[in-house]
Simulated scan of single mutants.
Amino acid sequence: MLPGIARFLTQAILGLDLSSHLGASVEFFFYDTPKVLMLLALIVFFVGVLRSFFTPERTRRLLAGKNEALGNVLAALLGIVTPFCSCSAVPLFIGFLGAGVPLGVTFSFLVSAPMVNEVAVVLLYGLLGWKVAAIYMGAGLAVAMVSGFVIGKLGLERHVEDWVQAVRTESLANGGDAPDQQTWADRIDAGALAVRDIVGKVWLWVVAGIAVGAGIHGYVPEGFLAAVMGKDAWWSVPVAVGIGIPMYSNAAGIVPVVHALLEKGAALGTVLAFMMAVIALSLPEMVILRKVLKPRLLAAFIGVVGLGILFVGFLFNAIL
């Protein structure tokens, strides 16, 4: 149905030739925009219901007191479903350390939460299929787990800012979570609120990302990206990561661009590395983290996560 509507709007309403660059771009935009927004709203609703079971306090307590290996795995998995992003880095970091969560485990969560979130996975599934979504989720979780484990083993706790070391959260004195008294009606309301809040905030990013993707789809010559971002260009992965870090976007805005890049022949590993760099190592997140991390620890975080992303890019370019 959507392909027919997109062709009708492009040809009959706008009078554009579908074989032209502009026509192909506009048809791509009309087709992808409603599909992605509808898919996003549906999944955000169900994840919003799921998130009602995970308060910040409960998440901290789930992670506190675990050995590092188990903690890194659990933290990365919780990052997928908990309602946190890089903007929450400062209060989360303080709260996690105050609740006794090890430094490495905290970093596993902080990498996973923005990078392997439900928006990224669902949009990848809707646009590129379950295999690409599963590859991205598995690779992202691996980067989060390994990065947290390595940072934990480096013994860099003293490089957390002094004022953070002095903070202790009230959760330590409270002695436990309040009983969960939400009804299913409350949880459904939470799902609807999540749609209004999350989709309301990211829909412009989605439309902007689709517009960029539409331009790539219609105007970038076939084979061009295969030469620039293909498997044979060994330098494409580090260049893609270097380009992605200073960009300011989120999963909702970058996934449609990823879709268009892959359609034009870019290698999957290179594109995944680009996407991970944009989401997990963005410049705004580094600025926020600098408030709680001394330069050496921040540099270690960037270096470890960056090397993990590079490894993912090279690995998938080699095996796929």
Rank of each mutant, 00 (worst) to 15 (best):
L92V: 04
F96A: 05
L97E: 04
L97Q: 00
A99L: 06
G100V: 04
V101I: 06
G104V: 01
V105A: 02
V105S: 05
L110T: 06
L110S: 07
L110D: 06
S112D: 09
N117Y: 00
N117V: 10
E118T: 12
A120G: 13
V121W: 07
L127C: 13
Y136L: 07
G140A: 11
A142V: 03
A142L: 13
A142W: 10
V143P: 03
V146Y: 01
G148Y: 01
G152T: 05
G152R: 05
L154W: 12
G155T: 09
G155S: 07
L156D: 00
L156M: 15
E157Y: 10
E161I: 11
D162S: 15
V164G: 07
Q165T: 14
A166C: 05
V167I: 14
V167L: 14
V167N: 13
E170Q: 08
S171G: 11
S171C: 02
L172E: 00
A173R: 14
A173Y: 13
A173S: 13
N174E: 15
G176Y: 01
G176T: 12
A178S: 08
Q181G: 12
Q182E: 14
A185G: 15
R187H: 05
R187S: 04
L193G: 12
R196Q: 11
I198M: 12
I198T: 05
G200L: 10
W203E: 01
W205K: 05
W205C: 04
W205L: 01
G213A: 14
G215I: 08
G215F: 06
I216N: 13
G218D: 04
Y219F: 10
V220P: 06
V220H: 08
E222S: 15
F224Y: 04
A226W: 02
A227I: 12
A227M: 13
A227S: 15
G230F: 10
D232I: 11
A233P: 13
W234L: 14
W235Y: 13
S236F: 01
